[in-house]
């Protein structure tokens, strides 16, 4: 019921706000920065489905992550990002012969991120830009929740209870027809609640997008456009640690192939993507990701 309500809110927001926007990758970072004093709000809902449990617990995981990001251009080169997630986590499993459902919902850990553009080469209707990223994930979400079965496992908690620094870099080559984005981010996960520490996380993405409509651009003025997006989203996570001891059933490598579509106007973007795991090399006995669906919008002020 909660899921349905939130999904409805997101869809309504998408439908109700009818302004004009632009084009960047859906699941990757970009080298572009907003203008000075420009404000951008992005909302994205991500649904992750995990199943295919190698153990006899028959675990089935469904998560909604409703992200709201506020981006502000401090200067033409520096921008500040604040990302607030609303999480709905649900785990179904079979233990001791009976079905069990556990989960939680609420605001998760907030991330503060700064971006600074260090390289710019502009051409007529083209640009090449490189930015560096740095920030921190703050322990805002509840990290000690319990249910009738006891304390929720750490990955079902809404927050990690830790301050986790993030660094990265993002490059963009953009023309009126195409865009290429390449980025890396590394999150240094630190120890949080219950002596638990998630493994460090490396994310790397390559995204390509192509305008498919309008086929010919008008000589004058502006236009709306439809882009096809294809991304390769990789991530490597080190093993988690509890009281300094590594958890053999954690961490690993996943690479998603993510086709998507974007409708872009001067002030508004609607976008959707599906992330399909093409390589999934997880340590121990973990539940594998079946797919992730992302849908969202961006509006600029």
């Amino acid at each position: 019921m909660k899921k349905a309500k939130f999904l409805l809110c997101v869809i309504l927001a998408v439908v109700l706000v009818s302004q004009r926007v632009y084009a960047v990758s859906i699941n990757s970072n970009i080298g572009l920065t907003p203008s000075k004093n420009q404000l951008l709000i992005r909302s994205q809902t991500r649904f992750t489905k995990k199943s295919d449990d190698p153990t006899n617990k028959d675990r089935d995981r469904e998560d909604f992550n409703i992200l709201t990001a506020i981006v502000y251009g401090i200067t033409e080169k520096a921008a500040l990002f604040v990302t607030v997630p609303y999480l709905i986590k649900e785990l179904k499993s079979t233990e001791d012969g009976s079905g069990r459902e556990r989960g939680d919902s609420g605001v998760g850990d907030i991330t503060l991120l700064g971006k600074y553009r260090i390289y710019t080469k502009d051409y007529p209707s083209k640009t090449s830009r490189l930015s560096i990223l740095g920030g921190i994930k703050l322990p805002i979400g509840e990290d000690d929740e319990e249910d009738s079965f006891g304390r929720l496992p750490q990955d079902l908690q809404l927050g990690s209870g830790s301050f986790d620094p993030i660094v990265g870099t993002a490059y963009t080559w953009q023309t009126l027809d195409n865009e290429l984005d390449i980025d890396f981010t590394y999150k240094f996960n630190t120890e949080g609640t219950n002596d638990f520490e998630f493994g460090d996380l490396l994310k790397y993405n390559i995204a390509y997008q192509r305008r498919i409509w309008p086929f010919q651009l008008p000589e004058e003025g502006l236009y709306s456009q439809l882009n096809l997006v294809l991304e390769l989203n990789g991530q490597y996570q080190a093993k988690n640690r509890r009281a300094g001891v590594k958890d053999a059933d954690s961490g690993g490598r996943t690479i998603f192939l993510s086709p998507g579509i974007q409708y872009v106007t001067e002030r508004f973007i609607l976008e959707s993507s599906i992330q399909l795991p093409s390589i999934q090399d997880l340590n121990g006995s973990q539940v594998e990701t079946d797919y992730i669906i992302a849908a969202g919008m961006r509006i600029t002020f």
């Binding site: 004009r20 960047v24 007529p124 640009t127 872009v264």
Partner: peptide, 18 residues
């Protein structure tokens, strides 16, 4: 005014505001 680096509608919005 000829402007280099202008390669997406979003960029136009920022430019217009300035």
């Amino acid at each position: 005014v000829g402007i280099d680096g202008l390669s997406c509608p979003f960029c136009v919005w920022g430019l217009k505001q300035q």
